[in-house]
Design a binder for these strands. Structure first.
Lengths: 222, 222
DNA sequence: GTGTGTGAACTTGTTCACAGCG
DNA sequence: CGCTGTGAACAAGTTCACACAC
């Protein structure tokens, strides 16, 4: 279930706050979801709750970690060491959740050779070596849009089974390769914002949120 | 609908490739979804297709842009100018889709005063000024986990109506504030990866993907 | 009594299949 | 004749409500 990561985070916060036993009601309000949903979701992991009491916080975290595969180290290769690639390689979240960056790839000779968070950036030709050394199952694509498809082909050809794509386009990959798109330009967010605005707009004619205008700055690729 | 951004991108690619009229079948295969789904989704925008022919590509893009609010400029304030905040401020995707970064906030005196993509980083105290000048409706949270809740309160208190949170936690915000979580640690992706592995595992006992081991490196906050 | 686990009702989203328009 | 738009069947996900275990 897609909500397990949210539960996991929430449980960790609760445990830090000293809550050793948690009810579906408490977890639900902390995670901002419905209590019945929590019980239904957790029942998929097995019957770990105690009727009349609730769930053991630490045990539940362990179970969710196991289900999400976070009790194992996952080797990851990042393709594209621009601003975003660098931010990801250095980010706390990656290492804290057992994702181990085993390779950094960039085609730019000025970037190849740089050391980011203890890892040397290598050229695309070295991908087979990286695969042989550490067998990363996950590839992260943080290259400019024009190179994304080529990089995806390269990664999949080298044996990566799962892709996380930050480039703003639908990629053409084999059906057995899992791919997730991360959209930093937040259209989705805006869409839901608009929807909500529309609903309230019928009552009070609210001030329109977007301000018309134009920025004269030239964007740079990250 | 959450698929509109995908359609929009795909249509732009098709238009660039010279496709001026697109059928639901063609758009569906390009966007990797079901044709019936495309027709159902597009019918929500209105009846813009021509029976027997298909949809006018350019017109459809205009309609989707309008529905997503991408034909207006959206002012955005970014809180936390670390690696990730910098990458976002500079990224092509933001400016290309009419998101205009009107403010950069950071509490670190070493970061305040820096100029990123033509914008000077300002201290949290300047938030009211930024709000008064450019009325950003959207706040982007790219601060370390410990500061996320405080920053969210600050932004919402200043009048931001919509938040994009990159911190790995559920934030406590008013019910009328829209919030979207962007999870860079890709648990979701891993979860679906596991699910798919399980399905194929019954046929052929596949090589386990994660490699056990541990990284000795110390992660740094982005 | 308290709170889980789950059958059953309900809501939302997806797919089929085809009438009918251009 | 090809393709849209949509009613109807279906599937998935959510919520209710309560028997029952502790």
């Amino acid at each position: 279930m897609a909500r397990l990561p949210v539960y996991q985070r929430t449980l960790e916060e609760l445990l830090r706050a000293g809550v050793t036993t948690v009810s579906s009601e408490l977890l639900a309000s902390a995670a901002r979801v419905n209590a019945a949903k929590v019980r239904r979701d957790l029942s998929l992991l097995g019957s770990f709750g105690t009727r009349g009491a609730g769930y053991d916080t630490a045990f539940l975290i362990k179970q969710i970690d196991h289900r999400l595969g976070l009790d194992q180290v996952w080797p990851v290769v990042i393709a594209g060491v621009g601003n975003l690639g660098r931010a990801l390689a250095r980010s706390q979240g990656f290492a804290a959740r057992n994702f181990d960056v085993v390779g950094l790839i960039d085609s730019d000779p000025h970037i190849v050779g740089l050391v980011v968070d203890g890892i040397r950036v290598r050229p695309p030709e070295d991908l087979p070596d990286i695969m042989a050394e550490a067998h990363p199952a996950i590839g992260v694509i943080t290259v400019p849009a024009g190179a994304a498809q080529h990089v995806a082909d390269l990664l999949v050809g080298a044996g990566v089974r799962s892709l996380l794509n930050f480039a703003p386009q639908v990629l053409d990959v084999a059906a057995d390769v899992l791919i997730r798109y991360v959209d930093l330009s937040i259209e989705l967010q805006i869409l839901s914002f608009f929807e909500a605005q529309r609903q309230t707009a019928s009552d009070e004619p609210a001030e329109p949120m977007p301000v018309l205008g134009s920025s004269g700055r030239t964007p740079r690729v990250g």
